[in-house]
């Protein structure tokens, strides 16, 4: 479904992603684990077409030369030359780190903004019902301004927003960052529901290895811009060098 080939991203001279290769098949939940600064977020952004955007934003500032090389294919089509909204239109949704809800909007308006790609009001309504079923808490907070939500609720909102246009592939960037263990558990259950019940293929970037491994069928391990290894949780944990050096177990 998704194939990332030899993707290299440099911020000026700093190599953030070095020759990354990754493949996801339809109906998989794939983990992407690694410490801070490993390049997980950059890889997800590269897939979602936001690196080009970074280029635009940092234009004119010093030492901010962003280079992007390599190819990204989604369902057999090259998407690395497309802009972010065109990629989203093809059914790929990114749920960014810390959610990034539109903080001055109400929860419902946030979800409606996520439903931009829906073609009819019926479609929007149906998707809204689905998201509310998945996250009943959002229904309770429907009319609340999303800036006043707690961290966990924000994360739910942003996953809900990404689901509003029924993506085929969902990229989730560190959903558990800053959440209490109980909330984490809850959120991962919801992600499992999205995967199993809605049948969405998921790429989950996560620092919490225990959760990432328990959910995903296989995982990629990243460190310093490289994809070091890949395999099932068992295989990765069996490899002592990986376990000690990169996973810190």
């Amino acid at each position: 479904m998704l194939e990332v080939k030899n993707v290299t991203v440099k911020f000026d001279t700093a190599m953030v992603l070095d020759d990354a290769n990754l493949k996801i098949n339809k109906g998989e939940l794939v983990g992407l684990v690694g410490p801070n600064g490993a390049g997980k977020t950059t890889l997800l952004r590269a897939i979602a077409g936001l690196i080009k955007w970074q280029k635009e934003v940092t234009r004119g500032t010093r030492n901010a030369n962003v280079t992007f090389e390599g190819t990204v294919e989604f369902e057999g089509e090259r998407i690395d030359k497309l802009s972010a909204h065109e990629i989203a239109r093809r059914g790929l949704a990114l749920c960014p780190e810390r959610g990034r809800p539109f903080v001055e909007m109400t929860v419902k308006d946030n979800l409606l903004a996520g439903g931009f790609l829906c073609k009819s009001s019926d479609e929007i309504k149906n998707n809204l019902v689905k998201v509310y079923e998945l996250f009943p808490r959002l229904k309770e907070r429907e009319n609340q301004v999303s800036g006043t939500l707690s961290g966990g609720e924000r994360q739910m909102l942003c996953i809900g927003r990404a689901l509003m246009h029924q993506p085929k592939l969902l990229l989730v960037d560190e959903p558990s960052s800053g959440l209490a263990p109980k909330l984490k558990e809850d959120l991962f259950k919801r992600i499992e529901d999205i995967f199993k019940e809605l049948g969405v293929t998921i790429l989950l970037a996560e620092q919490d290895i225990s959760f990432a491994f328990s959910l995903s069928s296989r995982s990629y391990v990243m460190s310093r811009g490289h994809i070091i290894s890949q395999g099932t949780a068992k295989e990765l944990l069996a490899d002592e060098t990986i376990r000690k050096t990169y996973l810190g177990l």
């Binding site: 955007w53 239109r89 539109f102 903080v103 001055e104 909007m105 903004a113 931009f116 990404a162 246009h165």
Partner: peptide
């Protein structure tokens, strides 16, 4: 409103 608040998130939503 979405553009005013967060253009990246707006783009990621397909806008």
């Amino acid at each position: 409103h979405a553009i005013r608040e967060d253009e990246i998130a707006a783009r990621a939503s397909g806008i």
